[in-house]
């Protein structure tokens, strides 16, 4: 079917409705969803192993960035990529602070035009804070300690970047 604007609407083959069964044993009911969420929760220990690997990788990328301050683009991208992965995983395993910190670090790196020493200090600060969150096993929002960490980070961030 084509209209006057050259737009063709095509009926897509509906293979899913032929293969998916409604209800019955094995269907995804609320209990199955809860079980699936429990499977994710059960992977939290594995997550801690993965994130330790990521912390080593991001520290390595940060060291490379420090050593190449005059040509930082590729190394900033590397730090960004690892932080982006960490952001995407933390919340799935109830490490919401890691998602918040990963997101904030990514946004900060995106805002850098010409990297300065204080910018680099901010990046180091975020990475160090992520290490604390994991070493202290600060799951969820980290409670009172988590709030203190985020507000302390914010203060140092403003001081370094002189943004109020």
């Amino acid at each position: 079917m084509s209209d006057d604007n050259g737009v063709r609407v095509i009926k897509a083959p509906d293979t899913l409705s032929r293969k998916v069964i409604k209800g019955g044993p094995g269907a995804v009911d609320p209990a199955a969803l809860e079980r699936a969420e429990a499977v994710i929760a059960g992977m939290a220990d594995s997550y801690l192993d993965w994130v330790e690997e990521d912390l080593v990788k991001i520290q390595g990328a940060c060291d490379e960035l420090k050593a190449n301050k005059d040509k930082p683009k590729a190394f900033l991208d590397k730090v960004f990529g690892i932080a982006h992965d960490m952001k995407g995983q933390g919340g799935s395993f109830n490490y919401d602070l890691m998602t918040i910190l990963g997101n904030d670090l990514c946004r900060f790196i995106e805002s850098i035009d010409d990297m300065t020493d204080p910018d680099l200090e901010v990046i180091v600060l975020y990475i160090d804070t992520m290490k604390i969150v994991i070493s202290q096993r600060m799951s969820g929002d980290g409670g009172e300690e988590g709030r203190k960490i985020l507000s302390g980070l914010d203060l140092v961030f403003k001081k370094l970047t002189r943004k109020d």
């Binding site: 899913l16 293969k19 998916v20 069964i21 409604k22 209800g23 019955g24 044993p25 094995g26 269907a27 995804v28 009911d29 609320p30 199955a32």
Partner: peptide, 10 residues
């Protein structure tokens, strides 16, 4: 909410 069995999907 309808429950679907996803067993046969790739």
């Amino acid at each position: 909410m309808v429950d679907y069995n996803l067993e046969r999907l790739n």
